[in-house]
Design a protein around this nucleic acid. Sequence first.
DNA 1: CCTCAAGGCCAG
DNA 2: CTGGCCTTGAGG
Length: 457
Amino acid sequence: METSFDILKFICDDLVGLEKDFLSPSSIDFVPQAQVPIESASALSNGRPETQISPSMQVSSSSDDLEEEIARRMESREPQCPICYDVAGKHFYYGVQACISCRGFFQRSVRNRFHLKFKCGKGTQNCSITARSRKNCKWCRFQKCLRSGMKTCYVMTHDQSGLPNKTKPLLPIKAMVKTANLSQTFTEHEVDKALSIYKNLLSFGYRSYYQLFSKNEQEFMTFLRALNETGGSPSMISEAFTETNKQATINYFFSIDDMASLSPFDRMTLISHNFPGIFGLLWSVYSYTPDLCKFYENFLEHGYEFRHHEPEIDKILLVFEANQLLGEKPKNLSIDVTFRSHSATQDLIQRHDSLVHEVNSGLRESTQGSADYVIVLLLSHIIMFASEFAVSLQDKPKIQATQEKYLVLLHRYLRTHYQGRARAKLSETMMIFEPCRQVFETFHERIFKARPPGGIF
DNA sequence: CCTCAAGGCCAG
DNA sequence: CTGGCCTTGAGG
């Protein structure tokens, strides 16, 4: 019987001959163009709460009294609830320094699952939310809670025994933020570099698909035949899908120095524990691209069937996807796949969708806008070098240092590109951690209609 | 000890 | 349902 590690070793051995015609591994190590004075982390974390209103928070209907109200709150230097502009409480609630009432509203909504039933009364989905109007539209208020960074996963369910929690999800994140040393600038050059590395990460994904479809043609045909015989079982598609993504993740991360310098044991441990987070992150970003939304929706809803029973069609599909994701003009292709019906519960679908939304809300300024791929790239590295799990690592300090390196990069980037909102954006980004894993879980539930069998490996 | 963030209670 | 106020427990 093969163990997880045996299988991983097999995959790793298989990678030895892989040519590396992409960016050199060390290119992920950004070198600042110029040394700038380092601002102390404590100064940042003790700074005044952000009072600036972000564009995305601004309400579209601009009545005068509302603007006055906002202006007044900005002037009075009290902490302000980002949702309704009321006076905020002293503490963070579910990840946001909100007012008591928005905290209560969010808690009740999530705990009783009311939020799944909210609808915007006007249907415009952009009702203004102020201290006075906040009761009017639950849907818009709840969305604003999410946009401001509140996380549903911090609301404990009844089965978590109601005690103030043993696991305090925010504390590790805050600790990380505090320990980060900052230098301030993130040059355009580095942004370009980060974007090209992101493309590199993506192309590893597509290379894995090609490997699945071309190198192992024999295997793939067996897979196709099995699909026919079982009526295109979605679980098999999902398995293959997850498997290729796993390989891509391994391919990419094993090609960077930070990972290559670790012991095989640590590498395997990191990959097996953190792959779900990476998968959830990338899946959420991919499936949120408007042009791909429809395809993925269908994929999740129904699974799909290879109409021509040829690998070719799927290669084309993936090329199409890759072109979209890499921002190149898609070829004029008509995709010929049929969707095969299978059912997931409405509740599960909603949970999955809202998790994907949660991940994306931290990566985009609006539902129309594209994700900030620099954040995606850096976050994926921060996730990969996470070490907060039970299994003991051989070189934990080094792994923590690596994670911190990427955290500092992220922080620097945010300070350069989001200025006053950097701090809020950072905590917003770090909040994505948990939902990413949950996206992986719900993705599998949705496809398998059950838990993923036997863990990750 | 004190702080923080989560849950609980209940008049309105 | 809302939102003000109280209790709890981990961690600094």
